[in-house]
């Protein structure tokens, strides 16, 4: 999946599952200050991303990375990374 495709699907989640307006969903939008998400939302977001992109967040492994997510584009990068890691896994 390209970064563009990922961005589109994340945007769709943000609109449908978090009731955010599409026009504010720019890559540099800050999740907390600009999009108004809080810490409870961020867990729901992780669950929604897990479902959409079929990966599992591993707490010990991913916690730091998730905590470092600030902007929409950080989510895209995180998903890219997860997908790369998944491709490396033996089936």
């Amino acid at each position: 999946m390209t970064e563009q495709e990922i961005a589109e699907r994340v945007k769709k989640i943000m609109v449908e599952e978090f009731e955010l307006k599409e026009e504010i969903l720019v890559p540099t939008a800050s999740l907390y200050d600009e999009l108004g998400l809080d810490s409870l939302d961020s867990v729901d977001l992780v669950v929604a991303l897990e479902r959409e992109f079929s990966f599992k967040v591993v707490r010990n492994l991913d916690e730091e990375k998730i905590r470092a997510i600030r902007q929409l584009k950080d989510i895209h990068e995180f998903i890219m990374e997860k997908q790369k890691a998944m491709q490396g896994e033996p089936k």
Partner: peptide
């Protein structure tokens, strides 16, 4: 609550 929370409860 946000739809995301309801989706999570459903799943």
């Amino acid at each position: 609550v946000r739809p995301a929370f309801l989706s999570r409860l459903r799943g």
